[in-house]
Design a binder for these strands. Structure first.
Length: 602
RNA sequence: GCCGACGUAGCUCAAUUGGCAGAGCACCCGCCUUGUAAGCGGGAGGUUACGAGUUCAAUUCUCGUCGUCGGCUCCA
């Protein structure tokens, strides 16, 4: 059965949200007759509208605006469309400078309301409901009555730059959400509440995985023992997989002389994101924001033959990037990070196989973690960025982009193309994921570098005995520890599979009389490589179970007189299921099996 | 970095118009010895983020700094 999925732009919901934005603009303009309107499109889950207003909006304003919007929609006003000439549009919006700018863009036939180029010159249309008229291409609902007065809500006030450019004036943006019915709105608000519960910043503290400390500094996480365990497990996994895939492990220092980043070409592109240099005896040293240049040095440290290729150098490298303060976000965007980094040096003929080998590695990891909600984004250069954001060699850009596109197509891997998102040295495939609260991040990355090897004078001797410059693939399938753990906390909502759980077993004695027995069980488990400890506190058993449940420990072993007499244990699994009076060896075998297989089931 | 909101005990939150800072959980000490998500009692814990200012008096009002959150911009 082939269900045709309707484009969002064609749905009733889209029209409702777009129309709700206009109704909101009407309410805002009634409150601020001198205010300036800009644009107000539907977005995922709702809509926004940007205004330039004489004063800042307050939460109280939002309430008033929402109330007024309910009155307006109940007025059952028709939305009427009219196509006008540019001249007429200019007269209508004579006191609306942002609209005049938009009209000019439309008239010149270049730009849509977001400043993006349009293929053909559009009609200039205006929509009106009640007293409010807006420059708009639509579409809208027929009447405001289609916007149910109990199915929308104004959510938040935010700042946003005019046309998304930080050099422009900052406007005030109001976000709202709108649905077809009250129940849909209720469901959505409920979903938001649920999402907050799995926010890694909240769970990270509750499960004692990481903290931030004001005196240490923003974006510099301190990993608590539980986080330390998770990191160790991830590194173990990476090392196993990379060893099997033919990688060699290297280690490189955290600081280097400025010269290295001048040679790599990073400084002109990257200086703003780097911690400032330290200068000693007239030499500048930088903390490394990436490992690549050092791996290049290792590749270049001896003569290489085509027989040695591909050379795959891996390192969980610690890097520091000075992200701007407003960009920090829990573990997902930090200033210190440990990257699942590796660089693959290969010939052009080997490229496709190596590139797809990395994609294959992604898939293996995703299977282990059960990750299925992601998009592979193929990031391309842009012509206008050549020589600025991107290495100025259009021929090689197009060539390597074709190589990647061909590899992905041959491998049957679905992807979306994104212009103007590449690294400065080449195109890349990023794996895009979403945090619990809906922010988008690149988790893993797989990048082609056709530029930097040459700058480092990297070469190998080919079959004909001539020097050839290798291609370099930069890849980080497990992202950074920071982003990966942040993601996994949300992905599992803290309910980690056994192998990844900081504490795998908690042994719970029912009374003090079993404390010694409980401790001996925990010890035996630890001797079997299972992370276990006994809760010998004076709490009641129920309370001990509760605290183990709250810490999301996968296995609880309850031991009372019964179990002690028969030398057995009673198992309570995190999901609430129980198996009473089983031999310890049976449980140990089960746990060891799940851990060894990195099983997702408990 | 920009716009806005916020910052009270380890955590989650209180504190009427400026008038001696409070609770639950966690922690410590007792008692209880218990069968699958919180037993009872007691104790300790705060220069109200930091620094100035206004005031007889500031958690409360003003300014600055730092940090967090929601966005924008930017990104692994």
């Amino acid at each position: 059965m082939a269900l045709q999925t309707e484009r969002y732009e064609d749905t009733q919901l889209y029209k409702i949200r777009h129309s709700a934005a206009h109704v909101m603009a009407q309410a805002v303009m009634e409150m601020f007759p001198d205010g300036k309107v800009t644009i107000g499109p539907p977005v995922e889950n709702g809509f926004y509208y940007d205004f330039d207003l004489p004063r800042n909006l307050t939460p109280e304003d939002l309430e008033l605006l929402e109330k007024r919007m309910r009155q307006i929609v109940q007025g059952k006003h028709q939305f009427t469309k009219r196509v006008v000439s540019a001249e007429e549009a200019r007269q209508i919006f004579a006191d609306q400078p942002y609209k005049l700018e938009l009209i000019e863009g439309l008239e010149k036939g270049g730009l849509d309301e977001y400043g993006n180029p349009l293929k053909e010159k559009p009609d200039i249309s205006i929509y009106q409901q009640d007293t409010f008229m807006d420059l708009c291409r639509g579409p809208h609902v027929e009447s405001t009555k289609e916007i149910k007065q109990d199915a929308f809500k104004l959510m938040t006030i935010a700042g946003a730059y005019w046309r998304g450019d930080e050099k422009n004036k900052m406007l005030q943006r109001i976000y709202g959400t709108a649905w077809e019915s009250k129940d849909q709105l209720k469901d959505y608000l409920h979903q938001l509440e649920e999402a907050k519960k799995r926010d890694h910043r909240k769970l990270g503290r509750e499960l004692e995985i990481f903290i931030f400390d004001d005196e240490v500094g923003p974006g510099l996480p301190l990993w608590l023992p539980n986080g330390g365990v998770m990191i160790e497990e991830l590194e173990k996994l990476a090392k196993e997989m990379e060893e099997a895939a033919g990688y060699s492990r290297v280690r490189t220092p955290n600081i280097t002389k400025e010269d290295l980043f001048i040679r790599s070409g990073h400084l002109p592109y990257y200086a703003e994101s780097m911690y400032p240099p330290m200068e000693l005896e007239g030499v500048k040293y930088y903390i490394k924001p990436m490992n690549c240049p050092m791996h290049h040095k290792i590749f270049g440290s001896k003569g290489r033959s085509y027989r040695d290729l591909p050379v795959r150098l891996a390192e969980y490298g610690t890097c520091y990037r000075y992200e701007k303060s407003g960009e920090l976000f829990g573990l997902m965007r930090v200033r210190s990070m440990q990257m699942n980094d590796a660089h693959i040096y290969c010939s052009e003929e080997q490229f496709e196989q190596e590139f797809m080998g990395v994609i294959d590695l992604y898939h293996k990891y995703f299977e282990i973690f059960g990750i299925d909600k992601y998009v592979m984004r193929f990031s391309l250069h842009s012509k206008q960025g050549l020589g600025k954001k991107y290495v100025d060699n259009e021929r090689l850009w197009i060539k390597t982009e074709d190589m990647v596109r061909r590899a992905m197509t041959n491998g049957n891997i679905p992807f979306v193309e994104a212009d103007d998102e590449a690294a400065f040295y080449g195109p890349k495939i990023d794996v895009q994921i979403w945090s619990a609260i809906g922010k988008e991040f690149s988790l893993a990355t797989n990048q082609v570098d056709f530029a930097v090897p040459e700058r480092f004078d990297l070469k190998f001797t080919n079959k004909e005995g001539h020097d050839e410059i290798p291609l370099c693939i930069h890849r980080a399938p497990l992202s950074t520890h920071e982003r990966m753990v942040g993601f996994l906390i949300e992905h599992y909502a803290g309910n980690f599979p056994v192998w990844l759980s900081p504490e795998q077993v908690r042994v719970i004695s029912i009374t003090d009389a079993q404390n010694e027995y409980a401790e001996s069980i925990a010890k035996q488990l630890r001797e079997n490589g299972i992370r276990a400890h006994a809760d010998l506190s004076s709490q009641r058993m129920n309370a001990k179970i509760r605290s183990a449940q709250l810490m999301k420990v996968p296995y609880m072993l309850v031991v009372g007189d019964n179990e002690m007499q028969s030398a057995q244990v009673s198992l309570r699994v995190r999901d609430g299921s129980q198996q009473n009076n089983i031999p310890l060896e049976d449980f140990t075998a089960r746990a060891k099996d799940k851990i060894a297989r990195r099983a997702s089931e408990l």
